[in-house]
Write a protein that binds this DNA or RNA. Structure first.
Length: 519
DNA sequence: TTTGCCGGGGG
DNA sequence: CCCCCGGCAAA
């Protein structure tokens, strides 16, 4: 089904095409493909970001450092690798995550070797390893620790794959019983933050996110393919997305890439815009006024929504209020990142008050940024529920640019209309507006397909606008009504038979309403 | 499943 | 326009 739809869509929209392809995601196979790409992307990211890291950024960098390190080998770290057929102890000289290669010094042999990261085993587990604990079907954590490649390469049995998600997200240790709930929460949170990503990308994002994301990227990509197979724990939902959830490293992935690439590239824009259009309709884009925007941080914890001006503040808030100011908070530290989102608040005072964000000049990011900005604030509400991230694998992997916005749609859709999971993969994404229509209209089937409805502006009783404000934009119609009732008269097809198609009236030949045997 | 035909795409 | 097709929904 999805495939069909997508195919069709493909014809019409780029978006559809891109999206649809991945829909195939058979875990493991397709999924993995995108990832390498990601890797590359990720690798690049830091470079781009370099410019951002001025002043205040640094602190966050440090803060995030440990996180980062988890995913790469550190110089001097003890490892063991195979050399001349035997396992030798060595020291990491340098790990290049970009190509996933590790330079290893073998003191005993007095040689330097370059090895793929996956070939390198950890001889000792570095301290910052907190993450892994929770689940673990069985792998020794040490193994896991080793670079991305490892996780990726072992096409994991679905089971383990699932797990990886949670693992990488740094879900805090939880008691067994609470585990499930937490997972879901996390999922939601992640999604939320993911959707936020655009925001991040936007100029002001600079602040802390960059480092974070970087780190996140690493870990995420690692988990990325793996997780796709399913959802960690919980319901089919989130898993159903099929790997969707995976690539969703909240801010990191998408946003980052975004920021770096999309920033300047026009392409990013259009991909993006396409997606977001529907929403924007609501509020005409023009509002972009850059200067007066201020960055705020909103707590995404369910039912909280606290807004603070500083990252530090919000982090603290999350930590203390929601995560519990645990001393064991090593992992928590990162986690807070998932629980807040950046948002831009226009300052009434036209005074182009010194934009709090410094680095990435907002000015440059013309068209796109404004949009993002807007979304940020809105999203939280819509998102809260979003049980699943679907799509993501494709989106993030293939075209990260459009991804973020897409997510939105999806989420929104789901949240409000509870589409049958089946159609989820494709439709909402592509035809956002359509699906709304379906949603709004009372039609039980919810078939998103009938785009017709949109164009047709037929007289329809105004559907009570229950949809989210996000959706408001396009006037949905009940799809049905006008379809010509099937005539009883004989039709060319019947009369001449399919073998004499040439004798049919043109309309029939064209699969249009028969002109010859009118009813 | 088959049939009728709408919405669309490509040329 | 012409022609064709994907798909939906009724039969």
């Amino acid at each position: 089904m999805a495939s069909v739809l997508s195919r069709r869509l493909g014809k019409r929209s780029l978006l559809g095409a891109r999206v649809s392809a991945p829909s195939a995601l058979v875990e493991g196979i397709l999924v993995t493909a995108p990832i390498p790409a990601l890797r590359v992307e990720l690798g690049r990211v830091p470079a781009h970001l370099g410019s951002y890291e001025d002043g205040h950024c640094k602190e966050h960098m440090e803060e995030e450092a440990s996180f980062l390190n988890r995913n790469r080998l550190q110089p001097g770290q003890k490892v063991s690798i195979m050399y001349n057929g035997q396992e030798c102890a060595g020291l990491v000289d340098q790990h290049n995550p970009m190509i996933d290669e590790v330079k290893v010094l073998l003191p005993e042999q007095g040689v330097h070797l370059c090895r793929k990261a996956e070939e390198v085993k950890l001889a000792e587990i570095p301290p910052p390893l907190e993450i892994l604990p929770v689940d673990q079907g069985g792998l020794p954590s040490a193994m896991d620790y080793s670079p991305v490649a490892v996780a990726m390469d072992q096409s994991p049995p679905s089971g383990s794959a699932l797990r990886s998600v949670s693992r990488n997200i740094d879900v805090p240790k939880r008691k067994p019983d609470a585990a499930v709930e937490m997972d879901e929460m996390m999922a939601a949170m992640v999604l939320t933050s993911l959707s936020c990503s655009p925001v991040v990308q936007s100029p002001p994002s600079s602040e802390s996110n960059i480092p974070t994301s970087q780190a996140a990227c690493d870990s995420w990509k690692e988990s990325g393919d793996v997780s796709d197979s399913g959802s960690s724990t919980t319901s089919g939902h989130w898993s159903g997305g099929s790997g969707i959830s995976t690539p969703s490293p909240p801010h990191s992935e998408a946003s980052l890439k975004y920021s770096s690439e999309a920033f300047s590239s026009p392409q990013a824009d259009d991909g993006f815009e396409t997606d977001s259009d529907p929403f924007l309709l609501d509020e005409p884009a023009p509002r972009k006024r850059k200067n007066s925007v201020k960055v705020m941080y909103k707590c995404l914890w369910p039912c909280c929504g606290k807004v603070l001006r500083s990252i530090v503040g919000i982090k603290r808030h999350v930590k203390t209020q929601h995560l519990g100011d645990g001393a064991d908070s090593d992992q928590r530290k990162r986690e807070e990142d998932f629980y807040y989102t950046e948002m831009q608040v226009k300052e009434e005072v036209a005074a182009a008050a010194a934009p709090p964000e410094s680095a990435p000049s907002p000015t440059t990011a013309s068209g796109t940024s404004p949009i993002l900005i807007q979304q940020a604030p809105a999203k939280p509400e819509a998102l809260v529920l979003d049980p699943m991230t679907l799509e993501s694998p494709l989106a993030s992997s293939v075209l990260s640019q459009s991804a973020p916005s897409s997510f939105w749609h999806i989420q929104a859709d789901h949240a409000y209309q509870a589409l049958p999971s089946i159609q989820i993969p494709v439709s909402p994404h592509i035809f956002t507006s359509i699906s709304w229509a379906a949603a709004t209209s009372t039609i039980p089937t919810l078939s998103p397909v009938r785009s017709r409805s949109l164009s047709f502006s037929e007289h329809q009783q105004p559907t009570p606008m229950l949809k989210s404000h996000l959706i408001v934009a396009s006037p949905p119609r009940a799809p049905s009504s006008t379809r010509k009732v099937r005539g009883e008269a004989k039709k060319c097809r019947k009369v001449y038979g399919i073998e004499h198609r040439d004798q049919w009236c043109t309309a029939c030949r064209w699969k249009k309403a028969c002109q010859r045997f009118l009813d």
